[in-house]
Computed example of a mutant assay.
Amino acid sequence: METKIFKRDELDEAAELLRQGELVAFPTETVYGLGAIATRDDSVKKVYAAKGRPSDNPLIVTVADAEMMRPYAKEVPERAEKLIKHFWPGPLTILLFAKEGALPSSVTGGLKTVAFRCPDDQLTHDLIKKLGYPIVGPSANTSTKPSPTSAEHVYHDLKGKIAGIVDGGQTSFGLESTIVDLSVEPAVVLRPGKVTPEEISQVLGEKVLINRGKVADKDVPKAPGMKYRHYAPSAQVYVVDHSEKFLKLALDQKSGVMATSDILAKLTIPEENKFSLGDSLLEADHNLFAGLRYFDDMKNINAIYVEAFNDGEESWAYMNRLNKAAGGKHI
């Protein structure tokens, strides 16, 4: 299969491919998603096949606005309306009870709930509106690999497996959306992202819990990223908890380092073995997946050392992804 790259003026062709049951990747402010019409079971199953994704890992439904979501939700409670008004379009995914029979079980994982997201990306809004249907939107990468933050990343992983990629350039944030579960009380953040539990709590006027548990092998996760291995390059990743420890590492030409610029400047390893996370947590959020992909393409690298951040809730999303990539291995 040829994988075509679509520009802004070619959205009609991209929408037609989706209408025909094909897969088309699309940009968001977080990472690129892999699109298929959410109501078509045959198309959705192609997503699992292209990604190599476990079939019990439910998918997020991506909409152009809140009105497009309503026919597929059993109800939209006042709590959801508050979050939609405050955070949509944006990097917040809302888990609600699904309307019975409105979506195939390949989307919901057989659960009674479904997650909805309205990304802050005009290209994708235009694509969905031209299509006239919501689309599923898992990250457009090979399952377990770092999520894609550019069209080039998608092409690297899925060339020949999907029909097209809408090129929206580099994503602006770089880590997947926050997922909040409103099917329970109090609300629970299932996956951290740019929108913090504190921000959600302030809008709702109620305490919001944080899920830190692991889903059992026999159970279906409520949302993506809760059960299976994620974000990992081929080489072993290690989390370096304190910056001074970088200077004590026995680094060699098979070592890759991802850290802030001031740390990299102190290391006497080849420049190609360094990847700058920038100079702040915000820049590190944006650069984390790109760095993991950079070293994944370097066949001589067998260990990747990555700087940790300890900035409270603000760094929770970054550390969540990094810990998953490292399999919990810290130095």
Rank of each mutant, 00 (worst) to 15 (best):
32 Y>M: 00
39 T>G: 08
57 N>G: 01
56 D>A: 08
62 T>I: 15
55 S>L: 13
49 A>E: 15
50 A>N: 05
50 A>M: 05
37 I>Y: 01
48 Y>I: 03
24 V>W: 02
58 P>Q: 05
40 R>P: 03
47 V>H: 14
42 D>A: 12
44 V>T: 03
55 S>Q: 13
35 G>Q: 06
30 T>Y: 10
34 L>F: 12
27 P>Y: 00
56 D>T: 12
36 A>M: 11
32 Y>P: 01
46 K>P: 11
35 G>I: 00
37 I>N: 04
33 G>K: 02
59 L>S: 14
30 T>P: 08
47 V>L: 12
43 S>I: 11
45 K>Y: 05
52 G>E: 05
32 Y>N: 00
44 V>E: 09
28 T>R: 08
25 A>Y: 02
27 P>F: 03
41 D>A: 15
43 S>V: 07
22 E>I: 00
21 G>K: 13
27 P>T: 02
51 K>A: 06
54 P>S: 07
49 A>D: 13
58 P>M: 05
23 L>D: 00
30 T>V: 06
50 A>I: 00
58 P>E: 06
36 A>V: 02
57 N>A: 08
44 V>F: 09
42 D>T: 12
59 L>P: 13
52 G>L: 04
22 E>V: 01
58 P>S: 10
29 E>Y: 03
33 G>M: 00
42 D>E: 15
42 D>Q: 09
24 V>Q: 02
60 I>M: 13
63 V>K: 01
56 D>L: 10
48 Y>N: 10
62 T>A: 14
62 T>M: 14
47 V>T: 11
60 I>L: 13
54 P>M: 02
52 G>K: 04
22 E>C: 01
29 E>G: 02
48 Y>P: 04
54 P>E: 07
26 F>A: 03
49 A>I: 10
48 Y>F: 15
63 V>C: 15
52 G>V: 02
51 K>Q: 07
42 D>N: 15
40 R>W: 12
47 V>C: 13
59 L>H: 15
31 V>E: 00
25 A>K: 01
33 G>H: 10
44 V>S: 12
51 K>L: 08
61 V>Y: 07
42 D>S: 14
23 L>Q: 03
23 L>F: 04
28 T>A: 05
57 N>D: 15
53 R>N: 01
27 P>D: 03
55 S>Y: 14
62 T>P: 04
47 V>N: 08
51 K>E: 11
61 V>H: 04
24 V>G: 04
59 L>E: 14
50 A>D: 01
58 P>R: 14
34 L>Q: 12
23 L>R: 00
41 D>P: 04
58 P>T: 09
38 A>E: 10
62 T>H: 15
40 R>H: 09
40 R>D: 12
27 P>V: 09
42 D>H: 08
61 V>M: 12
62 T>F: 14
56 D>W: 07
60 I>E: 07
45 K>F: 06
53 R>Y: 05
35 G>W: 06
25 A>T: 02
39 T>L: 03
53 R>T: 06
22 E>W: 01
49 A>Q: 14
31 V>A: 10
57 N>Q: 10
31 V>T: 04
43 S>F: 09
24 V>P: 00
60 I>V: 15
38 A>V: 10
41 D>V: 14
42 D>Y: 06
33 G>Q: 04
33 G>C: 04
38 A>N: 13
43 S>D: 04
22 E>L: 01
39 T>A: 10
46 K>N: 02
56 D>F: 09
51 K>H: 12
